[in-house]
Design a protein around this nucleic acid. Structure first.
Lengths: 225, 225
DNA sequence: AACTCAGTTGATGATTTTATGAAACGGAGA
DNA sequence: TCTCCGTTTCATAAAATCATCAACTGAGTT
């Protein structure tokens, strides 16, 4: 049974969605704002998040962005008709779909079904090992990285290092863990070797180099803004 | 029942196409931009893709190019009137048809029907699955390879190696997997044997030798630019 | 402002990995 | 047995990648 998190400040909306979703057999949890949504997501994993754009405390976009830092849970955004449609795209942060309020619960449920079906299938396959963030695409199976449609060539060490970081996106990775993971626990080489490879990665990634954040005194983190 | 993927950033357009397509008995899925289209295509196979040219995140051409790397799904491109240049460009990238916006849904559906019928037929004819990329033709059933119309003779090992690579086009294949697949898991011979056969393959393939990409420290990958 | 420590960068010779040509091998058929 | 041909091995060449070093930068501290 799939678990859904509904995030909206309006009680009525949450109730409507809950009613329909439970009728469809989903397990539903609620959050009243983005802040709470993030907290809940840290503790628990959902199959889908339905999130309003306009909310007190923390809006849907920011919450989406934050959650995407550590979870790949599909997200359906809800937005009022007035809120520019273009805006949604402008801020498109990997939400899987969006629905304009006022929405027909039936239509929403159809989308929910579609998204869940899609992601459930892909998890089964597990073969389709791909990470995407804006124009950055990392295909673990093909061992390729593309930036805005252009293939980026990388050396073996770059791949290993980068893939490891992307697989652990949003996590602080210590220099030690990076080195022992990519070079092997028995690497006793120069301390600066890691830095050099980080440099090469950044060079390869172009505009996405800022996704590799230096954690002074600790190591690095790959994050999706 | 044929499955169609509709890729357009405008909800209205998607709705219209969905409505008509479902009326015709097709199963429809949607994507809002090129990036999403690629992701969905990785997970699922469609009989046809209808894709807008102008989209945020990743335009239709780039998406088309990307999808063609791992799928041969026919594609119909949509573009606003006046984007004449695109027409040429689109066909070059292997889109199967082209419709100018604003289009008559009826006309679009006729084209959809035509393309699907065409590819369905050719798939029947080529029941004994063949792979083609430009002037390269690999007939798995007939066990033949032709380059620009000229038959290329290959030895058994070459066939096995090449066929395995083509069947897994776009995937990184490790030396180990290649060897155990083609030579058997119990092959204890020289490490360089694989290299030699790759060399022979490349020699046979002429201009298409560049489709066999060396993945340093890993193995090889067969890819269609 | 000077200091210090951590991280960044570019250059380079050493090392690793792959490509290649030639030779050896070995089984099937003449 | 001999020859042919696909296959494998091997030695060497060529290429790509890496580790290392030294100088540099820049943020945080004193």
């Amino acid at each position: 049974m799939s678990k859904i998190l509904v995030v909206d400040d309006e009680y009525r909306i949450r109730q409507i969605i809950r009613k329909y979703a439970e009728f469809e057999g989903y397990e539903v949890e609620e959050a009243v704002d983005g802040m709470q949504a993030i907290e809940i997501c840290r503790k628990k994993e959902f199959d889908l998040i339905i999130m309003d754009v306009m909310m007190p405390e923390l809006d849907g976009f920011s919450a989406c962005r934050e959650i995407r830092k550590f979870r790949d849970t599909p997200i359906i955004m809800l937005s009022a008709r007035g809120e520019e449609y273009d805006k949604i795209h402008g801020f498109e942060l990997g939400s899987d779909d969006y629905v304009v309020k006022p929405f027909s619960p039936k239509e929403l449920m159809m989308r929910v079904g579609a998204v869940i079906k899609r992601t459930a299938k892909s998890e089964d396959a597990a073969k389709n090992d791909v990470f995407t963030y804006k124009g950055l695409e990392v295909d673990f199976a093909a061992r390729t990285v593309t930036v805005d449609g252009n293939r980026v060539e990388m050396t073996p060490k770059e791949y290993e290092l980068f893939f490891y970081m992307v697989r652990n996106k949003g996590l602080a990775l210590t220099r030690e863990s990076l080195i022992s993971e990519v070079w092997g626990y028995d690497f006793f080489g120069d301390e600066r070797t890691l830095d050099t490879h980080i440099k090469l990665l950044r060079k390869s990634l172009g505009e996405y180099s800022k996704c590799i954040v230096t954690l002074r005194g600790v190591g690095y983190r790959f994050e999706t803004v």
